[in-house]
Amino acid sequence: MAARVPAVACVGIIGKHNNPLHISLFPPDARDALEFSFLLSSSLDVFEARLPHKTAEQDFGLLQAVDERLAMYGWMTNTGVKFVIVVDMEGRLATTNDPKTSIVGLRDADLKPAFKALQSAYIGLLRNPFYDPDQHSPLTANAEQNVGSTQITSRWFINEVKRIGEAWAPGVTSI
């Protein structure tokens, strides 16, 4: 039997008003988008429960173990935008390049490089003068601008999230 290593199954970006801004699935065709949308929504309760106990630390660590295979990890920016990574513990076959071929569990620190890369990508999106974060808020998007979607549509950002999700593996120190 070939060894398997954890891999990213889903990356979710959730706005400060708990609205989904972006969801990426890995691999994109093999996952049920509705199932992961529900999982991301369920993570909001954990963020809310832990929020009063958090100060400057952005890493929320393990939010919840969904089952014996999937686990959700969270990170929140100082503006209230939440990043959620769902890890599939049997995600992909191990290759000779994988730093660890027999993973029993993950440490919260294993996901920090991915969260930092996601935060850098989000900051890059915010630096774009044509990107208006208020356009993606459910409080202003439909009322003032008559925009139908609150999803992030930047191709650059979507490609960065895809790159980060595919590049992450346990033991990777920088993405």
Rank of each mutant, 00 (worst) to 15 (best):
Leu21Ser: 10
Phe60Met: 13
Arg4Gln: 13
Ile164Asn: 04
Ile103Arg: 10
Gln119Glu: 15
Asn19Asp: 15
Leu34Met: 06
His53Tyr: 15
Pro99Trp: 09
Ala9Trp: 07
Lys100Arg: 12
Ile175Cys: 03
Ser120Asp: 15
Leu93Ile: 09
Gln119Gly: 12
Gly61Cys: 12
Arg92Gly: 06
Asp67Pro: 01
Gly15Ile: 05
Phe83Cys: 09
Asp29Met: 06
His17Arg: 09
Asp59Val: 14
Phe130Ile: 05
Trp168Val: 03
Lys100Asp: 09
Pro113Asp: 14
Lys54Leu: 14
Leu126Glu: 15
Leu21Tyr: 11
Val84Asp: 03
Phe26Pro: 02
Met72Pro: 01
Tyr131Met: 07
Phe83Leu: 07
Gly15Met: 09
Arg69Tyr: 01
Thr101Trp: 11
Lys16Leu: 08
Glu166Thr: 09
Arg69Pro: 00
Phe130Gly: 08
Glu144Leu: 11
Ala114Lys: 01
Arg107Asn: 13
Ala33Tyr: 04
Arg4Val: 09
Ser120Glu: 15
Leu51Gln: 15
Asp88Met: 02
Glu35Trp: 01
Ser42Met: 03
Arg163Gly: 06
Lys82Thr: 04
Pro28Trp: 08
Asp134Leu: 10
Phe130Met: 10
Val66Gln: 00
Trp168Thr: 04
Met76Glu: 15
Ala2His: 11
Ala56Pro: 08
Thr55Asp: 14
Phe115Leu: 12
Pro6His: 00
Thr150Lys: 12
Glu68Ser: 14
Thr173Phe: 05
Leu125Met: 10
Val172Thr: 08
Ala121Met: 14
Leu51Met: 13
Asn128Ile: 05
Phe60Val: 07
Pro6Leu: 04
Pro133Thr: 06
Ile14Gly: 00
Pro52Thr: 09
Val86Phe: 02
Phe38Arg: 00
